[in-house]
Structures are given as structure tokens and as C-alpha cells.
């Protein structure tokens, strides 16, 4: 079963989480054969929002800029047997420490 780990790292977290921590985490997921895909997202100031209205008109705006302290900083999709296994990987993620949070969302499965 696939789960997406949405990593909300706290903005003041950089000090306690090193690049090495993230590299080690990714390597552990790869070695365990659970990592489907994952990326870090570029700084939030680079984000752009697109909406298409009922008339087909496209609106492009700068942002959004988070009001909260935590922003979505990256994600990993993992393939593991059950929620307990997914929660275990979320707890290992450096982003879950020091005020950060990892939200675990199952990927919806559809029968066609």
C-alpha cells in the first residue's frame, strides 16, 4: 500500500537537521526498498498558484505564502504493508523532529 509522507518542516529547524540526516534517511528508505518517489520543494517564495474559472479564464498569482510557521517542504511516497510501517518511516524522517511534522496520507486506490 502506498502512502505519501508530507513533510512540514519548521522554519527554524535547519539548525538541528543536517543535510547528512536527510541523505541518510533517503538512503535508508532506498535500501529498504520502500521509496517510490520523493522530492524536496524549493523555497516557498518561488511558488505560483493557478486557478481556472468557470469561464475558462486563467488566474495566475504569486504565492501562496504560508501564514503558519510550517510549510510543505517536501514529500516522499513509500510502499509499505500497512499504516504502522508508514508511521515508523514518518517517525524516522528528520522533518518530524524539532517542531516539524509529517502528515501520512494513504494514496487512494481505485478499482477500474
Amino acid at each position: 500500500m502506498k502512502y505519501m509522507l508530507l513533510i512540514y518542516a519548521a522554519s527554524d529547524q535547519q539548525a538541528s537537521c543536517t543535510v547528512e540526516d536527510w541523505i541518510a534517511y533517503e538512503k535508508e528508505m532506498k535500501d529498504a526498498g520502500v521509496l517510490v518517489s520523493g522530492h524536496s520543494l524549493a523555497d516557498l517564495v518561488t511558488a505560483t498558484t493557478v486557478q481556472v474559472g468557470q469561464d475558462g479564464k486563467r488566474t495566475v498569482t504569486d504565492g501562496p505564502f504560508a501564514e503558519t510557521r510550517e510549510v510543505l517542504g517536501g514529500y516522499d511516497v513509500i510502499d509499505v504493508p500497512d499504516l504502522d510501517a508508514a508511521l515508523e518511516w514518518a517517525a524516522k524522517c528528520p522533518g518530524s523532529r524539532d517542531g516539524g511534522a509529517v502528515v501520512v496520507r494513504p494514496i487512494a486506490e481505485f478499482d477500474f
Binding site: M1, D82, L83, D84
Partner: peptide
């Protein structure tokens, strides 16, 4: 069911 919370003893 959908998040697949397992039936297991930790």
C-alpha cells in the same frame, strides 16, 4: 480499512 491500520500485536 482505508488507511490500513493493521491487526497486529506491536
Amino acid at each position: 480499512k482505508e488507511a490500513r491500520i493493521p491487526f497486529r500485536v506491536p
